[in-house]
């Protein structure tokens, strides 16, 4: 039996703590991230014979190196390489929340998205095409209403399926019998990728290629992510490249 490490990310007030509690119940442990006073909450659950450990990342709008919380979230993803990232998205503030989702996707770790606050979104008359979104983001999407405890079992199933790899499930709702509901788009068919357009791609692509051809760098960091961060003139990305 293997322990599956899952990082839980999300913008503030997306319902991250609610979903975390829904999945883990009382099996939680609180410590600090190394060297700082930011709380690190971990929790466990068992599902179909697997032990899953959830690590609650600090709630942040973004993943730059400007604030301590963002650096902690980012360093965890970069250096601990969890098997899956569970991204809690506020369906009622989809546009802003996807900003973080894109950055998570660029780090190259398989994503499961909890489309939370679905009651609020529906109350506002929003209809979200989760099939389309799932296809674009290359991630399994599960609709949840954290406050009412809805979607927990589906999330556990999605996390296990994503961990096992191969393909992600399209859409959400009913339980997936070894991916019977899945349209079978394999991850090999394409990772999540934002097209930065004709002004930036001619700079990004050669940089990405150069980084991916360096064995020391490509073994440790996702080349696309590093290229984007270097283009943003991110201080931490400069440091990472300089260290090697």
């Amino acid at each position: 039996m293997k322990e599956i490490i899952v990082a839980v990310a999300g913008q503030p007030n997306s319902g991250k703590s609610t979903i975390f509690n829904m999945l883990t119940g009382a099996r939680q442990h609180v410590a600090n991230y190394p060297g700082v006073t930011v709380e690190k909450r971990t929790g466990k659950y068992s599902y179909k014979g697997n032990t899953v450990t959830l690590v609650d990342l600090p709630g942040t709008y973004s993943l730059t190196s400007y604030s301590q919380e963002e650096r902690i979230a980012r360093d965890f993803l970069l250096h601990e390489r969890p098997a899956v990232v569970l991204d809690i998205v506020d369906a009622a503030n989809l546009e802003r929340n996807l900003y973080l989702t894109f950055q998570l996707g660029e780090m190259g770790i398989p994503l499961v998205i909890a489309l939370n606050m679905m009651d609020v979104a529906e109350g506002r008359g929003l209809k979200i095409d989760t099939f389309k979104l799932s296809e674009l983001l290359r991630a399994t999407i599960v609709a949840t209403v954290g406050k009412k405890g809805k979607g927990g079992k589906e999330l556990k199933e999605a996390i296990l399926n994503t961990y096992k790899g191969g393909h992600f499930r399209m859409g959400y709702g009913d339980a997936c019998e070894s991916c019977g509901a899945c349209l079978g788009i394999s991850r090999e068919k394409g990772h999540f990728r934002v097209d930065y357009g004709e002004k930036l791609e001619p700079i990004l692509r050669p940089l990405e290629k150069m980084l991916s051809e360096d064995p020391k760098i490509s073994a440790r960091y996702p080349a696309r992510w590093l290229a984007i961060k270097l283009m943003e003139n991110d201080s931490e990305a400069h440091r990472l490249v300089g260290l090697l």
């Binding site: 709008y61 730059t64 604030s67 900003y99």
Partner: peptide, 12 residues
Amino acid sequence: DGATGQRLMDMG
């Protein structure tokens, strides 16, 4: 520039 500009961009 810097942290303030990034923060505003993060907020949309």
